[in-house]
Amino acid sequence: MKKALVTGSSSGIGAAFAAHLARQGSDLVLVARRQDRLETLAERLRGETGVSVEVLKADLADPTDLHRIEERIEQGDDIDLLVNNAGIGDIAHFVDQERDTHERMIAVNVLALTRLSHAAIPGMVERGGGTIINVASGFAFDYMPGASVYAATKSYVAQLTHVLDAELREKGMRFQALVPGLTRTELGGDAEFFDMFPPEHVMSPEVLVEVSLASLELGERVCIPRLADIGEWERAHAAIRAVGKSPPHNQVAPRYGLDQQSAG
């Protein structure tokens, strides 16, 4: 890969992506809010691997910062991998969270990911193709109380990734929805949260990234690292799609007790 842009790259999964890609010889554009951490990581990766590392401090919930990163993507002709990793994952019951918290989660997890993908895709297609990895979550497929807005944003990420793949795979684009399980990060600002789980239940970001990139080479559009049989996911996804499709008639299901002749 020529150059990768990784959001949320100052720690956790984003930093692990940056380190792994640098070892593979990819130049990097690192985006995150914490300038000091970005500079420290960039200096280390330059010294260890010799790759070029560009640092862009940005809060993707801030429209001005977001537009600046979009412009960097659009004005360059060098990004062939975009890792949309930045995310906010505060967990609390819906009414116990401030509306501003909800808005910030949606801004980063949904709006920023969408706009950066939209900025990247045209240039990638023009250059013959590219890759976008979107970090989703197992909450995208669950209904855990306390994860309402976070889970909804990650459902959006998963669905968008599926549809973009269907639209653009024939134009040389590759997409992956990465679905981490318990992975040691600083999501929500509480690095100690994962200490309550047995160590063997928590994956390291480094292993997660290795699996993600291996999954990409296998052509998997969804990467669920702990799932032994990817066919299990494919069958479940196919069943959900089948239920969602309208049958070829306008008959209302009998359980609603309506006069079928009035269904039209």
Rank of each mutant, 00 (worst) to 15 (best):
E170H: 13
V209T: 09
A22H: 02
K57V: 13
I79Q: 02
H118K: 15
E126T: 13
G87C: 06
V31G: 00
A15K: 02
A152P: 01
I133G: 00
L216E: 10
E200F: 12
E167K: 12
V53M: 02
R72W: 09
M196K: 14
V6W: 02
E70F: 01
G130S: 07
L111K: 11
E98F: 04
K154W: 05
R68T: 14
L56M: 13
A19Y: 01
R46G: 07
E200W: 12
G264S: 14
E217G: 10
N250M: 11
E186G: 14
E220D: 12
H67F: 08
V51F: 05
D165G: 12
G76M: 07
R72L: 08
S148L: 12
A238N: 09
D96W: 06
G129T: 10
A177T: 08
P254H: 06
L41C: 09
L218I: 07
F175R: 05
P63E: 13
T64Y: 06
R37D: 01
T7R: 04
A19F: 01
K57G: 14
G89H: 05
D80L: 03
L38C: 07
S26P: 04
R241H: 10
L208N: 02
R104C: 05
I106W: 05
S52T: 13
H93Y: 14
E234M: 10
E170N: 15
P247H: 03
G14H: 06
A61G: 15
G264D: 13
T183K: 03
A242G: 11
G231C: 06
E43K: 13
V108L: 09
A152Y: 00
A86Q: 01
V157Q: 02
A191F: 12
V209A: 04
H93T: 14
